[in-house]
Nucleic acid binder design. Structure first.
Lengths: 140, 140
DNA sequence: TTTGCGAATGATAATCGTTCTCATTTGCGA
DNA sequence: TCGCAAATGAGAACGATTATCATTCGCAAA
């Protein structure tokens, strides 16, 4: 569990809004959340935090490495707790189920492809769109 | 070269704005263009097309399969002619320069990662965000 | 070829997610 | 406890995109 000291460790003052956002992500009430999601959940909990602050805190947490930001198709960002392991996503086109995966070979080839072309990788995103085989999936 | 009949073939009336947008993409004056890019280039050519129409036409062309839409970081959509061949993209975060690449090893590993998890790949997108080394790039 | 109508267009208002501004409040070290 | 820089919240501003609506156009039937 994160404590105020964790914020200090990443160079951020321990403030009420920051602690509330962090504990929301740790509560497991949502793994992938947009700024709007976070804002509404905090309001619903009776926690009075401004929307602008939510945006600021999410960005700070991303820069501090506490959260990872994903760029949705359509333009809005979603965040998830950074649990240290980079991973990509497979999204089921039928039921929206998201599965995370990591493939070292893919990571290595990406690095190679970029450097061969004179690029210095800053970030990357890989989304595989597929049909899953979940029992609950409507395509079954 | 596309002709009015091509628009008919995909179920779209042949209109002046549509022909202008299509020929701009075919002119090679820009491979990856945002709606704003298209709008400005048409105005610069003396072609009087409304911005709203540019957005509509780009979306229609995407649905018709004439163009492919990419959602790059930074929140704006970029379009390119659909030439039938899959490829991934490296995007420079500084100057927006886009380079295309294809890596068979990455493709193969994606296929493997998905099938191992019981998914049937339908589509996928890989974007690498980086700093490029172009002379013209502002980060130099 | 002219005509008529539904589709397409363009100007502009509206929307959405996000960032900025700025007056007020807060965390925290002295 | 005090003081001040940093953080906050309300709302304005912003950039990309979509919706609205009166006008114009493409095209097929007469």
């Amino acid at each position: 569990m994160h404590q105020p000291e964790h914020l200090k460790n990443v160079g951020l003052k321990s403030t009420v809004p920051r602690l509330k956002v962090l504990s929301l992500f740790e509560s497991g009430r949502g793994r992938h959340m947009s700024a709007e999601d976070v804002y509404k959940l905090l309001l619903a909990s009776g926690d009075d935090v401004g929307l602008a602050t939510v945006y600021r805190v999410l960005t700070q947490f991303e820069q501090a490495g506490l959260l990872v930001r994903h760029y949705f198709e359509g333009g809005k960002s979603v965040f998830e707790l950074n649990q240290g392991t980079h991973h990509d996503h497979i999204v089921c086109l039928q039921c929206g189920h998201v599965e995370e995966f990591y493939d070292a070979a893919i990571e290595a080839h990406q690095e190679k492809a970029a450097s061969e072309r004179g690029f210095q990788i800053r970030d990357h995103s890989l989304y595989i769109y597929a049909d899953c085989t979940k029992e609950s999936c409507p395509n079954k």
